[in-house]
Structures are given as C-alpha cells and as structure tokens.
Computed example of a mutant assay.
Amino acid sequence: MQTKTTLLALAVGLALMAGCAKQDETAAVADAPAPAAGEAPATDTADTPADAMVDPADAAAPAAAETVAPAAPDAAAFDMEAIPVSTATLPEWPYVQLPAGYVFDDADRLGERTKDLARIPVWTGGQLLWVEGKVFSDDIENVDGKTFSRFELAKGLRQQIESLGGVRLAERSYERDTYMANEKALDDFRQEFSDVQDAYWYDKDMETYVIRRGDSLVWIVLEARNSNGAVLVAEGPAPEAPAG
C-alpha cells in the first residue's frame, strides 16, 4: 500500500513540473513584442549561414542595372578654325551693300557713323564675345516710292554677306540669363550704339555673321524690323576669350 502511495505522489509531481514548464514557455511567447503593421515576424538567424541570408528588398525585386544620366551639352563655343578663310574682294567700308531701294539713315555722312576703336559684343549662338576694332552702325530705311519689306532686306543682305564668305552664326539674340549676367556692360553698349540696341535685347530676331580674313574677323549684326532695319559692322582681331 505504501508503495502505491509513493508511486502516485511521484506521478503527480512529474505532472506538476511539466505543467509549470509549459506555462513558462507560453508566457515567454506572450511577452515577445508583436511585429509592426506590414512588418515580417522576426526569425531566429543565429543558425543561418551568412551567405544564405537575403535582404528582403533584394528578394522582392531583381537588381537593376546602374545607369548614368548623360551630361547636358554645353553651349556651342565659337571655333574660329571652323570658319573658312575668305579671299573675296571686300567692297568699300562698311562692306555691307544694301539691296536696291534701301539706304542708310545717315548715307550722306557715313564717316561719322564709324568709330576707329570700340569694344562691342557679338552673339555667336552659344557665347557672348566681346571684340575690339573699327565699328560702324546705322539704321536702314527705304527710299521714297519703295515699300519696305523686312523679308526683302534680310534676304538681300544675307546673299551679299554670304557672297563675301560670310557665315551666319545666329538667327536670334541671347536668352534672358545671358543678358542678366552681362546687364551693366550690355546696357552701356546699347546706349552708345542706340541704332542696334533692339538687336541686343534678349529673345529678339537678329542675325550674326562673321567673315574670316587672313588676319582679322569681320562681324556683321543685322536686325530687320517691320518698318526699318539696323546693321553693325566690326572688324578686328579674333577675340581671346568668351564672356558670360
């Protein structure tokens, strides 16, 4: 009888011990922090080899090839060597011969329209260059009995300039940013050469030509407006460096 009692007590003790262990395990799981919304449950990686571990982001999507955005091209720099040397015989200064029916505003005193030395800007379509040399400027008008045509004037001058070996570099003036970066110098120039000041405002229809001679460059800036026009001619050495 005593043996049965002892065995019964031993069985009860073992059952109580197993219950306590089960209770401790359940409590440990309950005390563990719950994963945040959208977060995968934590896993034990202690026994996982390092080379077998994968970043969840890498597993979700294939690796993309690295791409490099192309750099924005710089504005085209003026290359004098790209301009062919002209050996054409130039007419009398200021070299520009107007189409029939058109005259310079000061045709009777053209000499007064020339400065022996001045510093003027020319827009090449990509750079604003400041050049020094002899400079002529004047308005262009139609004679009495001739109807003014903006197209006719521009076309006639273009053909004459190109016959002298001239190359057109630009068909419009610079943008506002270029003007603002050179505002003081450009405003001073526009006041001195008021005949062509509209051609040196930003976003204007104007044309820039260059004639390359053996030892100099001839720059021609033309603006043909609806009722009149203007021209600037400058002759001097090639510019040493760009501005703005």
Score class of each variant (00 low, 15 high):
residue 142 N to A: 15
residue 142 N to G: 12
residue 143 V to T: 12
residue 143 V to W: 05
residue 147 T to C: 00
residue 147 T to Y: 08
residue 147 T to L: 10
residue 148 F to S: 02
residue 148 F to V: 06
residue 148 F to E: 06
residue 149 S to I: 07
residue 149 S to L: 11
residue 150 R to S: 15
residue 150 R to H: 08
residue 151 F to E: 15
residue 154 A to M: 15
residue 156 G to S: 13
residue 157 L to G: 09
residue 158 R to D: 15
residue 158 R to F: 13
residue 159 Q to T: 14
residue 160 Q to H: 15
residue 160 Q to M: 09
residue 160 Q to D: 14
residue 161 I to M: 09
residue 161 I to D: 09
residue 163 S to G: 12
residue 163 S to R: 09
residue 164 L to C: 03
residue 170 A to Y: 07
residue 171 E to R: 15
residue 174 Y to N: 01
residue 174 Y to A: 01
residue 175 E to F: 06
residue 177 D to Q: 09
residue 178 T to N: 08
residue 179 Y to G: 01
residue 180 M to D: 14
residue 181 A to S: 11
residue 181 A to P: 04
residue 181 A to F: 04
residue 181 A to M: 04
residue 186 L to N: 06
residue 187 D to C: 02
residue 188 D to R: 12
residue 190 R to S: 10
residue 190 R to H: 06
residue 192 E to S: 11
residue 192 E to M: 01
residue 192 E to R: 09
residue 195 D to E: 14
residue 195 D to C: 06
residue 197 Q to H: 11
residue 197 Q to P: 00
residue 197 Q to V: 00
residue 199 A to W: 01
residue 201 W to M: 12
residue 202 Y to Q: 01
residue 202 Y to T: 05
residue 203 D to S: 10
residue 204 K to I: 12
residue 206 M to Q: 11
residue 207 E to G: 00
residue 211 I to P: 04
residue 212 R to Q: 06
residue 213 R to S: 03
residue 214 G to S: 12
residue 215 D to F: 05
residue 215 D to S: 13
residue 216 S to V: 02
residue 217 L to Q: 08
residue 217 L to T: 10
residue 217 L to N: 08
residue 218 V to D: 06
residue 220 I to M: 06
residue 220 I to H: 03
residue 222 L to I: 12
residue 222 L to M: 11
residue 222 L to S: 03
residue 223 E to P: 02
residue 228 N to W: 14
residue 229 G to K: 13
residue 229 G to L: 10
residue 230 A to I: 08
residue 230 A to T: 12
residue 230 A to F: 07
residue 230 A to N: 13
residue 231 V to Y: 08
residue 231 V to R: 03
residue 231 V to A: 11
residue 233 V to T: 04
residue 233 V to Q: 07
residue 234 A to N: 05
residue 236 G to Q: 03
residue 237 P to I: 02
residue 238 A to L: 01
residue 239 P to N: 02
residue 240 E to K: 12
residue 241 A to P: 00
